[in-house]
Design a protein around this nucleic acid. Structure first.
Lengths: 146, 146
DNA sequence: CTACAACCTCAACATAAGTTTAGGTCAAGA
DNA sequence: TCTTGACCTAAACTTATGTTGAGGTTGTAG
């Protein structure tokens, strides 16, 4: 099974052709060209796109994914260990997100209890408690900013 | 304590003046005007913005928040029960999100195990398993789409 | 009365992640 | 050979969530 055309890659990976063009422009996937200037993708591209989609579900922006990919060794030469490292980093990220959501969820229970009618009483809306030390207003969690 | 000017609202709520302008254009907050055409906000605006920020942390788009607000009774007449209903809906949403991330997290563990070198073996990357019945490619979860 | 900060509107710009459109090329079958 | 579908590029458009800037007004302190 040789390289595949973009249409097939799109069909197999579940993303649109235009999205693949876009990913290529962003350096997320690579292709070689046929004599007639058509793209041909190695099977690796299929995995890359799968990883892109997965990472997006985790809320990771394409730029970050691109950086991760860039940190891999030569294209096509990524070792099992490399992919594992990537997975581990994402797992850690995920854990952080889950923890944040769960903390928020806990506050929301308080909120349901108080009916949110009193700024003074509501734990979630009132920034004047322990959690607000890091900024103005009800800044409780601030995802991805560096 | 009467109505407050936009600068003070910004300072107290922790969002920028331009963001408040923007929220107003989107119908998320309301204001009356002074003789000199300056905005004056009721205290309710403070709570509204707190709620907006909270909801954003939950990943809820402004349009959804606007719809929630629109579903409330007359502005300023929202009852405790109304806010509770809103909180409960958001809590449910949060629960769904948390469940999704956790499922993803579980798959990621498999992925770390397999090193992601084999599309055939990796549970997360391979769409050909039970979870993929609902579309092309590795569509595993599809947040907010209706 | 004069400064100056805070306010106003409107329009343009920014970023992410693509999609759409327009105009042209390539490959394969009838 | 002709047609059709897959492919190519480039640029414009889209949605969300604001920020920035230009140019003008208000309100308050000295």
């Amino acid at each position: 099974m040789p390289d595949i055309a973009i249409g097939e890659l799109a069909a197999r990976s579940g993303v649109s052709v235009s999205a693949i063009h876009f990913y290529e422009r962003k350096g997320l996937v690579e292709s070689r060209r046929t004599a007639g200037n058509q793209r041909r993708f190695a099977r690796e591209a299929l995995r890359r796109i799968a990883i892109i989609r997965m990472a997006q579900q985790l809320g990771i922006p394409l730029a970050d994914i691109a950086r991760m990919f860039a940190a891999l060794p030569e294209p096509g030469r990524a070792t099992r260990r490399d992919w594992q490292a990537m997975s581990r980093r994402w797992a850690a990220d995920l854990d952080r997100r889950i923890a944040l959501l769960q903390s928020l969820r806990g506050h929301l229970d308080d909120c349901i209890g108080c009916g949110c009618l009193s700024l003074a009483r509501c734990n979630l809306l009132n920034p004047k408690d322990a959690l607000s030390a890091s900024g103005t207003g009800p800044v409780r969690l601030r995802q991805r900013n560096g």
